[in-house]
Design a protein around this nucleic acid. Structure first.
Lengths: 237, 237
DNA sequence: TTCCACTTATATGCATACATATTTCCGTGA
DNA sequence: TCACGGAAATATGTATGCATATAAGTGGAA
């Protein structure tokens, strides 16, 4: 009948979105030190646009929690304390645990089951080959894919949104795995994490709701242990 | 030393914020039917401001999830299905349950304990007097205060933020309690809800973590039952 | 009649100029 | 030396006009 009309095409990217993506990456990658003031005029000059789209980008990042108020109603890059990172992980554990319990109760679709299986095998393969440095990005992708698959499978937009928000925390994001040198100890840690993955998926397949939830919470708590060890070095003291 | 400088004073309210508050209230109060297009020019004329602050207000509400994309990259009031309302409640149960477990584990401060006690007594008093219609707003406030106190006491900004977001759902917000006529049945429902409140606080005081969490999850699920019964009448069919 | 191409209309995206709020910096006075 | 007050500086808040993308409307050809 009438044309579907909107969204999915998106043949045009607003400058405000471009700016937001750029700034978000800089913050999450640590290019901007915590506390760095983000002012509209300098940024607009640097990016060759007017203040308007920069303003909108800052507004977006602010609502994502990446910025905090500065001197003149301005924004600066938020300083995350170890406590806040822990808070983010606690919520992640709570939310992803909820996801696992839910999936164990309602069951996995064939498609989701297959995607999880692919992640598990992919991880197995990477580990079997010693997780060489050149493939650490793959490991990271696999990890993200597995967690994202579990969350998305619940088809609860609030859940997806909240989990996403806990990822928008510098140091708390999985994108920082590469900070760890891949020595023997860290290889062992990765192996353990992947054992968790296997256990979680198995529990869901076995429809063991409480167990699946517990394993995921434990897995996230374990991950935080690793991150906190590293992140301590970044604390302002 | 140097002055504290910023935030807490806020002796100035941007028009964009005023507009956002106005529009948010209209949406949550149901003044705008789901699907109503919100265009910049008409709104700016109505509110006597330029498009700029309206634009910003729409951007804010959009990020809060109250709007969805319309025809020309415009926004319209989001249509919430019963499924989505259920999703919001499920997450609320998960999150507030987490809060109760946490508080049972770390213990209540004297101040928080006192505030909870005040809420409980306030509710008792309202119920003892039959919860007359003129005091239903008080009941609503008491309920909000109790839930908010529990959440805030965790001092986890992510938790606060997420719970807040689940409240930004028309029909799912406690502000709709007044939709229920206060007949005998509904009085009974309110009484039961307050019994839940007592049980939850007692479990936390007794440091019964799992029990406190369960009671809260159950309380939220119970609330959803009441809302869904009502909300069914609003479904587009 | 139906479909396609083109034109027209309209609402948002962006740039710019100006208004205002806050801060900083001086200068004055005790 | 320090406290106070006011002027200047600076960054954000808002208004306005133009650019552009998208939808709607129009007309002609198959």
């Amino acid at each position: 009948m009438n044309a579907p009309v909107n969204d999915p095409k998106a043949g045009f990217t607003p400058r405000s979105e471009t700016a937001a993506v750029t700034l978000r990456n800089r913050i999450l990658d640590g290019e901007y030190a915590p506390g760095t003031p983000l002012q509209e005029v300098p940024l607009s000059q640097e990016m060759g646009v007017s203040r308007t789209p920069i303003r909108e980008a800052l507004s977006i990042l602010s609502k994502e929690g990446l910025l905090e108020p500065g001197p003149k109603r301005s924004f600066k890059v938020k300083t995350f304390t170890l406590d806040e990172i822990r808070h983010a992980y606690e919520l992640r554990g709570c939310l992803e645990g909820f996801a696992c319990r839910h999936l164990a109760e309602v069951g996995l679709s064939d498609e989701v089951d297959a995607r999880l299986e692919a992640c598990l095998r992919h991880g197995d393969e990477l580990l079997a080959k010693g997780l060489e440095a050149s493939r650490q990005d793959e490991w990271l992708e696999m990890n993200n894919e597995l967690h994202a698959t579990l969350v998305e499978a619940c088809e609860n937009p609030f859940l997806s949104s909240f989990v996403h928000q806990t990822h928008h925390v510098p140091l708390a994001s999985a994108r920082h795995v590469h900070w760890y040198a891949m020595d023997e100890r860290n290889f062992d840690l990765a192996r353990k994490a992947h054992e968790h993955h296997h256990g979680i998926v198995q529990a869901i397949r076995d429809r063991q709701s409480a167990r699946a939830g517990f394993l995921m919470e434990e897995h996230v708590a374990y991950s935080f242990g690793l991150v906190s060890e590293y992140a301590e070095g970044f604390q302002p003291k």
